Amino acid sequence: MLFIKCDELKPGMRLARPIYSKKGALLYDRAHVLKDMQSIENIKNFGLIGVFILEPAEPVPPMTQDDIEFERFQTVMYHEIMDEMEHIVKTHKQEHFPNICAQIIKSYGNLNKKITFQQALRSTEDYIYKHSLNVGILSAMICHSLGVSLSDQNEAVMAGVIHDIGKLTLNAELQSKLNCSQEELSVIDAHEVAGYPIIDDAFSFLPNVRRACNQSRKILYDYWRNNIVDTSKALISAKVLVVAGVFDKETAVRVDDAPISEVLVIRKMMQRSDVFDHKVVKALVDSLNILFPGVSVELNTGEKALVIRTNEADFLRPTVLSFKDNTIIDLSNRGAYGNLEIVDIMKTMDNRYIMDTSKMKALGFSVDEPEYV
């Protein structure tokens, strides 16, 4: 699978992922062949920077119905959030914001199952809007897992979606830059603070939205600058925003930078409980499919292995099948494998996996069978 910029598309190429309109209507399905220049011009007119293309002999990648719906939902909500944030910047008033957050909570704030969190490719121009959407979705799921009140969940989602509105006036490259200098951090922080009067005006009836944004900003500002971090008085919505914001930022798929794996990001969070509340991090882990059957991993010995059974008690220590000698390793058995651990995930370009569940069942393992479309 290759990412091809729109200007480099050619007739005969096959789409690897579906393309939706702003309203969520399917425009081009997976495996659609770009037959002529008109199809390519249509894609350019959708405002996309590029699309994922299948290589000549590559089969269509597996997607479940949940994967497809998540991608459609992201497309629709991205455009709604972009339009609403531009409206708020101009008028300091919200128009559709409560409805946007209600849609996020309805779709992803009441799930009783984990989801595979698919990251859409981002450019410098659309980074803030896609980041805001994903932080809102993650906040909704974390709050549901924590069992907080609906009002707290609503405030957390609102803060997640609106927290970066001040950064829209930043240089486009700084909006999405992952590793910043101390000087750049100060510039970014100043723009974020400059957006708070807008949040105050638009959310005057919900002061905790602004408080959550400010508290999370202060926590992360001290964290990035290696200062002492104090979260003792932070709202639960601020703690959720810290975890959701950093997770999305570091795992985001950028045009000009490779993402950090979910395992590395969560492991880093677990090592800094003074910054990332351990209950909130656990709620994030409990909401997402990360180390599930079919995922290829690298062990600290350098060996490669395949996850064949999850470990709900400690997701970092599942049961794996070694590629080296086909031995089954139960990492939850610390007596036998205490020094062995997963250091990272081996990923395909679009982060999707598929495995033969029938073989796993024949070996006596109980595994979920996703319904691929």
Rank of each mutant, 00 (worst) to 15 (best):
A194T: 01
A190E: 02
L220Y: 08
P207R: 03
R211T: 13
R210C: 13
A194E: 09
H191Y: 13
N214K: 04
A190M: 01
Y223Q: 03
I199N: 00
F205K: 15
Y223C: 09
S204W: 08
R210V: 10
I198Y: 06
I199A: 00
S204G: 10
A190H: 06
I219W: 08
R210N: 13
F203V: 02
D200G: 00
I188R: 15
L206Q: 10
L220P: 08
S204Y: 12
S204R: 11
I219Q: 07
L220K: 04
P207V: 08
Y196W: 05
R211Q: 15
H191M: 09
A190V: 00
D222W: 10
D201I: 03
L220F: 08
R211D: 12
F203M: 10
S204H: 03
Y221P: 00
C213H: 05
P197S: 11
Y223R: 08
S216C: 12
A202H: 09
R211L: 13
S204A: 12
F203G: 05
H191G: 01
C213K: 06
C213M: 14
D200F: 00
D201G: 03
K218T: 09
R217L: 11
D201K: 14
V193A: 10
A212L: 07
R211I: 14
Y221F: 09
A194I: 00
V209E: 14
I188V: 15
A190G: 02
C213P: 07
D200M: 00
I188G: 05
V209L: 15
D200Y: 03
H191F: 09
K218I: 12
D189L: 01
P207L: 13
N208G: 10
S204P: 00
R211A: 11
Y196E: 02
N214Q: 12
C213R: 07
H191V: 01
D200A: 06
V209M: 13
S204D: 13
Y223T: 01
W224H: 14
N214R: 09
I188D: 07
D200E: 10
G195L: 00
P197G: 03
A202G: 11
A212I: 07
L206C: 12
P207N: 08
C213E: 12
N214T: 07
E192T: 04
Y196K: 00
S216I: 05
Q215N: 08
I188K: 15
D189Q: 01
N214H: 06
L206P: 01
D222G: 14
V193L: 10
W224L: 15
S216M: 08
N208S: 14
A212K: 08
L206G: 01
L220T: 04
H191W: 03
N208F: 10
Y221W: 05
F203E: 09
Y196C: 01
R217V: 01
V193R: 11
F205V: 15
N208D: 15
F205A: 14
Y221V: 02
G195V: 04
I199E: 00
I188F: 08
Y196T: 01
I199R: 01
S216R: 06
